[in-house]
């Protein structure tokens, strides 16, 4: 399962899954070690949905400068526990992102 899926060669972009759906990016930042962001050159937070019918988890994608740092972070953060609003425990799950691309430069759309 999990990391086994990714056929990508370099594995510096990781995804954190299974985060509570009502998490915000500020709250997430508070849960990671302070110096993590020094090794991250690109990241984004995708909020989940709290709908009753089809809830979805929040996601965070992080791109590290080196594979070692990514590994280090993965080992540290995998299984990080959150308590949801219903009082249940929800454990974060770190994985290699299947799609490793990150944006390069910015072009301004003149249209």
């Amino acid at each position: 399962v999990s990391a086994a899926i990714s056929l990508a060669k370099k594995r510096t972009k990781i995804v954190i899954r299974n985060l509570p759906s009502n998490l915000t990016s500020e709250l997430f930042m508070a849960t990671i070690p302070e110096d993590t962001m020094n090794h991250v050159d690109f990241w984004y937070f995708h909020p989940g949905k709290t709908s009753e019918k089809y809830p979805s988890d929040s996601l965070v994608y992080l791109h590290f400068i080196s594979e070692e740092k990514a590994k280090e972070f993965g080992n540290l953060y995998n299984g990080h526990a959150f308590i949801t609003s219903k009082g249940k425990e929800q454990r974060a799950c770190v994985d290699v992102a299947p799609y490793q691309k990150v944006p390069k430069k910015k072009k301004v759309d003149t249209k």
Binding site: S2, I5, A70, N75
Partner: peptide
């Protein structure tokens, strides 16, 4: 080749 890749970075969650 996938199995060997997977074990390296992160331990696998239960299936």
């Amino acid at each position: 080749e996938l199995a060997s890749q997977g074990g390296q970075l992160i331990p696998e969650p239960q299936a």
